[in-house]
Amino acid sequence: MEFFSQGLQGLIDGLLTGGVYAMIGAGMSLIFGVMRVVNFGHGDFVILGMYAAFASNQYLKLDPYVSLLVVLPLAFVFGFVLHRAILAKLLGANDQTTKLATLGLGLIATNLVLLQFGTEPKTVYTEYATNAWRIPLFGLELRISEVRFYAVIITALLIFGLNMMLYRTELGRAIRATAQNRLGAELQGVDTKKIYAIVYGIGVVLAAAAGVLLLPLLSATPTLGSVFTNKSFVVTILGGLGSLPGAIGGGLILGVVESLGSSLFPLMNSHFGANYRDAYGLIIFLIVLLFRPEGLFGRTVKRV
């Protein structure tokens, strides 16, 4: 019974965290899907979001959720300008160059954070941070953390909004067209360089939003970036690079695997430490790569 209850609780926690992973992965996946660029600095933008929320709280006394209204537009402008000023110059360069550039941008971002805020962990204290709803179910009591719940709701809204934008607006159609055939899009009059900058901006928005939503749960440190970059890799590979529904599925699976792993195998964790939870995700990642290299939901669309 104990095992079952822990499992169910682990499942719930995992789905809630997985939602946020999904958003991080969705940004990376979108960037790859449209520009064929693997954004090695992606996790660092999550960290920037965390510190932006921290700073808004420190200096402007904003609640983290309210700070989204400030942080997200800034994140978009930041991503857009970063692409225009730097990555756009590398269009047509080889893969390695672009990879190194995205990696470098992430390094610069985290080191600026380091200079400004130092190495010690930062977080915000909200009165609701530890609140949880208790839900009785078949004699068990399940806890749903308020903060995680809000995180999932906001994530769902952002991903829903992204999807509506991609499939219901003129801009969205131009983005999809650019993703499927850049030359074809350019010849219809689409300014594909601008589309790239917009998409990069959206990717940074999703990463930063995840950072803001995670801050009440986690403390921010400048070095967490690579952890999140790794997670977004796992999410996008699980789901199939470039697929939005894939990223959502991949994120949820990663969240659940990590959470179940660490709640059901306490022995492993006491032996290797709590950080072992990251390993469960990587194990699944390897298994999927071995048996379904195109991703769990991957499907290849032929280019015409």
Binding site: E170, R173, A174, R176, A177, Q180, N181, L183, G184, A185, L187, Q188, G189, V190, V301, K302, R303, V304
Partner: peptide, 22 residues
């Protein structure tokens, strides 16, 4: 263009409508 350069995963109609993007 050579090779047509269509948007393969969009409907025929969406492809045509992209022509009126501007």
């Amino acid at each position: 263009p050579m090779g047509r350069q269509l948007f393969p995963a969009m409907s025929v109609e969406e492809n045509l409508e992209m022509g009126a993007y501007l």
